[in-house]
């Protein structure tokens, strides 16, 4: 039962993530300034943590790949930036949902 509730919540989150919203829905779903600032601060902290725990350690591996095969490096480079873009966006949406739930 809990698993079904969680799956439903995830589906609803994904739907909200990509669905076009009407003007009324946009106005309703826009976070208040306080929520937006809290979400932004938490998100910025997570991003900084990601930089110090992950990005710093990629330099040597990327250089090795760059020297070994440019086409493969090109694909990996595009995949990395797209993945980072999507993941950071999902994390910001999740943080906003959690902040909304806790503060309202």
């Amino acid at each position: 039962m809990n698993k079904k509730i969680k799956q439903g919540a995830v589906k609803s989150f994904i739907g909200d993530f990509v669905r076009k919203k009407t003007k009324a829905e946009q106005l309703q779903s826009e976070p208040s300034l306080k929520l937006f600032i809290v979400e932004l601060l938490i998100f910025a902290s997570l991003v900084l943590g990601y930089f110090f725990l992950v990005l710093i350690f990629l330099a040597n591996w990327l250089k090795t790949l760059f020297d070994a095969s440019k086409p493969l490096y090109a694909l990996v480079a595009l995949a990395l930036i797209v993945t980072q873009g999507v993941v950071l966006e999902v994390i910001s949406a999740v943080v906003l949902k959690v902040v909304e739930t806790k503060l309202e």
Binding site: L40, F43, A44, V47, L48, Y50, F51, L55, L58, A59, L62, F66, K70, Y73, A74, V76, A77, L80, I81, Q84, G85, L88, E89, S92
Partner: peptide, 18 residues
């Protein structure tokens, strides 16, 4: 063509995402 330093891009993007 060897003109992309993806690590620079990834670091810049962390700021851009915010």
């Amino acid at each position: 063509k060897g003109n992309v330093d993806i690590l620079i891009a990834l670091v810049m993007h962390t700021g851009a995402a915010v």
